[in-house]
Amino acid sequence: MLLEILIGLLLLGGAAFVLLGSIGLARLPDFFMRLHGPTKATTLGVGALVLASLLHVGTEEGTGGLREVAVMLFLFITAPITAHLLAKAAQAEERRRTATQAGGTLPDGGKGTG
């Protein structure tokens, strides 16, 4: 009974954070601000959902739950790397845009920025 309440709370909390990350992505005004939602809130939210699944499957079928732990670890390790690469890509894109606005033409003509 207690476990079921815990699973329910983890489900609600996790889903709330997942939604929060996406709300941040949708409504914040600038790319670097939008980056914050998905890297932190969504990662924690999915982490909580995986934990809920681990508790649930662990009690229902008794298969341990090492695979869930693998999914969670993978997400927590990759989230900062994705954020870092996206930030670098955004900076490169911004440099490219300011360069084309300044009058200089780039090899690719600054295509596909919008």
């Binding site: 670097f32 914050h36 890297t39 900062p80 870092h84 930030a87």
Partner: peptide, 27 residues
């Protein structure tokens, strides 16, 4: 850098090897 990205309102953007500094963006 990874820890900074996962914790309070900050994302690490770049590691500047020459100056030995971590570029961070804060919400």
């Amino acid at each position: 850098g990874s820890i900074v990205s996962l914790t309070p309102g900050t994302v690490s953007v770049d590691i500047d090897r020459e100056r030995g500094a971590l570029q961070v963006h804060a919400l």
